[in-house]
Amino acid sequence: MENRPKILSIDDNDANQKLVERALGGDYDVKTAMSGLSGIEAAVTFKPDAILLDVDMPTIDGLRLCRMIRSEPLFASTPILFVSGLDSQEDQARGFQAGGDDYISKPIDVELLRQKLNFNLQRALLLDRQSSASNDSLALDQNTQSLHDFLLSLISFRGTQQELGQLVLDALDKLGLKGAVYLHASGDIFSSIGPLTDLESMLLQQATRPYPSEYSARYLWGSDNLGAIIQNMPLARHEQYQPLVQILTTLFSATNQKIVELARPTVTKLTPQRQNPPSVDYAGIQLHGYKLECALEDLENSSEQSLAKVCQRLQELSLQPDKSPQEQQALRMLLDDCMKTRLAIYDQCLEIQSQYSHIMAQLGMKVAFN
């Protein structure tokens, strides 16, 4: 960044815009836009270092505008801070999914605004340096070997949950990934990206399932025992994204199971009577596993391709000038429904993979989804 950092504020409320200009004008080069369309134009011409974005705006709401901005490679890592009266946990989670970095509640606390803006600008510089290094190392065979080494370490691990958290962080580092891990039981956070934003902390503590963001380089994973957030994933459209998600799913699922094992009380085991082990059709299990793998892959690919085409067409239709506001709103609602469906199918496939991997582990068999 040269001279003062450039801040673009997009909000249809004139009073809020004047407040932002007064609060930031001395230290930042501030530009304002009063609508989504003018905000897009300003982003392209002004090339801001950070964007402040209202959620509740007419024609193009803030969530949709955030997705549109994130779809441009130029703004893939630009900090986007939602400034809104819609600040429930559900609203903030939707903001993360749309590609937002942080949330500031209205009415605006000027000091908090300055603190969060400065924090996210500094974070963006750090992640830019880390991302270029990690993206160069996204080789599938190397990552698979790193996962294999981690799983071997996990099998023999007998330490504390705190030591386990650091072990996971070390494994992520070997994958070229930066992020944070949160243990629900102890409340411990292990981070390779320094302090977390309020939004990141909230999401980690609430995470009980995978929650990908298709519009940013972040990935959130959750279970009953831990939450994890990755800050420098390849984008969802990148060829390395899906293989890396599968590696992370295996890594975090195995860690979740190890936490369960560590929490079990130690009991004295009686020597069991010798019994003939039951006969297990391992060949049949492997065959069914292969069929399941192929079916899941077909489901993900076909649903992704079909729904992506529908989403693209709905977005094109909603931007046509001959559409009435009611028609545009209806199209946007359909678009949001399609996006939710895509993520729901994706989450279910991940859950099936996780459960199947766990079953195979109990049988002492190896399984890997391609």
Rank of each mutant, 00 (worst) to 15 (best):
V20N: 04
Y211S: 07
D102V: 06
L331G: 04
Y290E: 00
L331R: 04
V30P: 02
A228R: 04
L296K: 00
L65S: 03
M360N: 05
L152P: 01
K106L: 10
S357V: 01
D101L: 13
K116F: 00
Y28G: 03
L63D: 05
E200K: 08
L140W: 15
S156K: 13
I189T: 14
Q328V: 10
G165Q: 00
D188I: 04
N118W: 04
C311P: 06
S9Q: 15
L299R: 11
Y290K: 01
Y346M: 13
L314C: 11
E316P: 05
Q231C: 13
D149T: 05
R70E: 02
F190R: 02
G194F: 02
I10A: 07
A133N: 12
H358T: 13
Y219K: 04
I51A: 08
A33M: 06
I285E: 00
L24A: 05
V245Y: 03
F96E: 08
M68V: 13
P79M: 12
L314I: 13
A133F: 14
Q17L: 15
E21S: 09
Y282S: 02
L204S: 03
C294S: 04
L164S: 00
D322A: 04
S213C: 15
E72C: 09
A33C: 05
L81T: 09
G100F: 03
S132F: 14
V280E: 02
A236L: 08
Q17T: 13
L112T: 07
D14E: 13
A283Y: 00
Q161S: 14
L117Y: 13
G26H: 07
V245R: 05
M360T: 01
R64I: 15
G289C: 02
G62F: 15
R94V: 05
R123F: 07
